[in-house]
Simulated scan of single mutants.
Amino acid sequence: MAFAGKYELESQENYEEFLAAIGLLNAKTDHKVITEVLQDGSGFTWTQSIPNWTWSNKFTVGQDCELTTMKGVKFTAAVTMEGGKISIPFPQYHFTAELIEDKLVMICLTPGEKSVTFRRTSRRI
């Protein structure tokens, strides 16, 4: 599955609820998020940017990788891919990403009884 490319935010659902659930409500923004994915086999560099802020992680599918949360906290997690879907267990949510009809669809699901499902769809640019 070729994720490599640049994507621009097209739509998102439950964004504010998700930010509140992970303690980042003040980070709310109306900017168009740009996601850039560099891929070399099973190795990825995944970068999200808005003006004045960039967040990037490098990882290899099938390995434990050192990653960084949106808050800048480092952690180690196993990155997997099944059925063309990347899966990463972040400390406060579970992240998946897949390509659906050339659109990058990212879903973040917070755990617990009051879980929040944040869905972001971006179009290739």
Score class of each variant (00 low, 15 high):
residue 7 Y to G: 01
residue 7 Y to K: 02
residue 7 Y to P: 01
residue 8 E to Y: 12
residue 9 L to R: 07
residue 9 L to H: 05
residue 10 E to M: 08
residue 10 E to T: 07
residue 11 S to P: 03
residue 11 S to K: 07
residue 11 S to R: 08
residue 12 Q to A: 08
residue 12 Q to P: 00
residue 12 Q to Y: 05
residue 13 E to P: 02
residue 14 N to F: 03
residue 15 Y to G: 00
residue 16 E to N: 11
residue 16 E to V: 05
residue 16 E to A: 12
residue 16 E to P: 02
residue 17 E to P: 03
residue 17 E to R: 05
residue 17 E to N: 11
residue 17 E to C: 06
residue 18 F to Y: 12
residue 18 F to T: 00
residue 18 F to K: 00
residue 18 F to R: 00
residue 18 F to E: 00
residue 19 L to V: 03
residue 19 L to T: 01
residue 19 L to Y: 01
residue 20 A to W: 03
residue 21 A to C: 04
residue 22 I to N: 00
residue 23 G to W: 06
residue 23 G to C: 05
residue 23 G to V: 04
residue 23 G to P: 01
residue 24 L to C: 08
residue 24 L to E: 05
residue 25 L to T: 09
residue 25 L to C: 07
residue 25 L to G: 12
residue 25 L to W: 11
residue 26 N to P: 05
residue 26 N to Y: 12
residue 27 A to F: 12
residue 27 A to I: 08
residue 27 A to S: 12
residue 28 K to I: 10
residue 29 T to Y: 10
residue 29 T to V: 10
residue 29 T to H: 14
residue 29 T to K: 11
residue 30 D to V: 09
residue 30 D to C: 06
residue 30 D to P: 01
residue 30 D to L: 08
residue 31 H to K: 08
residue 31 H to I: 02
residue 31 H to M: 06
residue 32 K to Q: 15
residue 32 K to G: 08
residue 33 V to D: 07
residue 33 V to P: 03
residue 33 V to W: 09
residue 35 T to A: 07
residue 36 E to H: 09
residue 36 E to M: 06
residue 36 E to F: 06
residue 36 E to C: 05
residue 39 Q to G: 09
residue 41 G to E: 09
residue 42 S to G: 05
residue 42 S to A: 11
residue 42 S to Y: 07
residue 43 G to A: 14
residue 43 G to W: 02
residue 44 F to L: 07
residue 44 F to W: 04
residue 44 F to T: 00
residue 45 T to M: 08
residue 45 T to C: 11
residue 46 W to R: 01
residue 47 T to Y: 04
residue 47 T to I: 01
residue 47 T to H: 10
residue 48 Q to L: 02
residue 48 Q to N: 14
residue 49 S to W: 02
residue 50 I to E: 13
residue 51 P to I: 10
residue 51 P to T: 10
residue 51 P to L: 07
residue 51 P to W: 10
residue 52 N to H: 11
residue 52 N to D: 12
residue 52 N to V: 09
residue 53 W to A: 14
residue 53 W to F: 15
residue 53 W to N: 14
residue 53 W to L: 12
residue 53 W to Q: 13
residue 54 T to P: 03
residue 54 T to E: 15
